[in-house]
């Protein structure tokens, strides 16, 4: 166990990095740089929120897009009617609420059933929104007067910092120990006094807050809401790929995964978007088969092994 004071370092670090990113980077980067940085930072927020449930408890959710889309939808519905900040918060809490509602029944099934079920629920929500919009005669909605790109970028940085701190605290707190125990052996976890259902549903709800706000910021960037795009399963799958590539037992792995894949995407997207996705697929297959603990997990293990070799005399029975 780590003492709470241990959090002070990383949280302070995250704050410093976030402040630097928010106020120094815009001065250095042009429009293109800010767009790239916004994309990166939004992905970081998404992957950090995803690990809280799926990384720590092992309940792999293929439905994260539902929360992005739901947040975006609430945000566009309230757009102009409520203050901007209120809309953002409402987007987050709506997604969180959605997760709490569907979480109870969904988290009763495990393993592959849960994975497929979350995909099904996300698709169901998507088509529900599409049908609602169609019956209202709307096929996409426009927003006028969205914030400047720099301001969206700064909000995204703040959101990513919040998401990181949430993932960090969730990982190293009593809550996180319980979540990981559920992943390791749910029956034993319950017999050791863990309120398994509460923890799982709580983690699901927590992990859905940030994506709701991400959805709101995403449509602020484009000024356009289109359900097929906001609820795309591709979004969920990319989140998983980033987390698996980096390693999903802690906040650092997904951070590395998001950085790695965003840079790769930036290098390839313009020239060959299909090639980017092909490489994404190859990376995913390679990581799962050859380094199941991800880039970060594998690196930590290698380093630990090396340092253990350096300290002789420790024998194991």
């Amino acid at each position: 166990m780590k003492a709470p004071s241990w959090f002070a370092g990383p949280i302070g670090g995250a704050l410093v990095v976030a402040l630097l990113a928010a106020f120094v980077v815009p001065g250095m980067a042009g429009d293109y740089g800010i767009e790239f940085a916004t994309t990166l930072v939004l992905w970081i927020a998404l992957v950090q929120s995803w690990v809280i449930l799926s990384g720590y408890t092992g309940y792999v959710s293929l439905g994260h897009a539902a929360f992005v889309g739901a947040g975006a939808y609430v945000f566009i519905l309230t757009w102009g009617a409520v203050p901007f900040w209120f809309g953002l918060v409402a987007a987050g809490f709506t997604s969180g609420l959605l997760a709490l509602i569907v979480g109870g029944p969904c988290l009763r099934v495990r393993g592959p059933y849960f994975v497929i079920l979350t995909l099904g629920v996300a698709e169901f929500v998507k088509y529900a929104v599409i049908n609602i919009e169609a019956s209202l005669g709307k096929f996409g909605r426009l927003m006028i007067g969205t914030p400047e790109p720099v301001d969206i970028y700064r909000m995204a940085v703040g959101l990513a910092a919040i998401a990181f701190v949430m993932a960090l605290v969730a990982r190293y707190s009593r809550f996180g120990v319980g979540l990981r125990a559920i992943r390791e052996n749910e029956v034993a976890a319950e017999m050791t006094g863990i309120r398994v259902r509460w923890l799982k549903v709580g983690a699901f709800g927590l992990s859905a807050l940030v994506p709701g706000v991400v959805g709101a910021l995403m449509i602020c960037r484009t000024g356009y809401f289109e359900p097929l795009q906001m609820f795309s399963p591709q979004l969920s799958l990319t989140i998983i790929t980033m987390c698996v590539a980096g390693g999903s037992d802690n906040p650092w792995g997904p951070l590395i995964g998001a950085l790695f894949l965003n840079i790769l995407s930036e290098l390839l997207w313009d020239s060959a978007p299909e090639l980017y996705t092909v490489i994404l697929g190859v990376v995913l297959v390679f990581v799962v088969l050859r380094m199941p603990e991800g880039i970060y997990g594998t690196a930590v293990k290698r380093l630990a092994r090396r340092s253990r070799k350096a300290v002789p005399g420790e024998t194991t029975p």
Binding site: V278, G281, L284, V285
Partner: peptide, 25 residues
């Protein structure tokens, strides 16, 4: 055990991305 299902899902997802986008290319 359960790890087979999880890993295979991710591997097939990767393969699916490769096959789909190769066809698209």
């Amino acid at each position: 055990g359960d790890a087979v299902e999880g890993s295979s899902l991710l591997v097939f997802f990767g393969i699916s991305m490769v096959v789909q986008n190769s066809a698209s290319l």
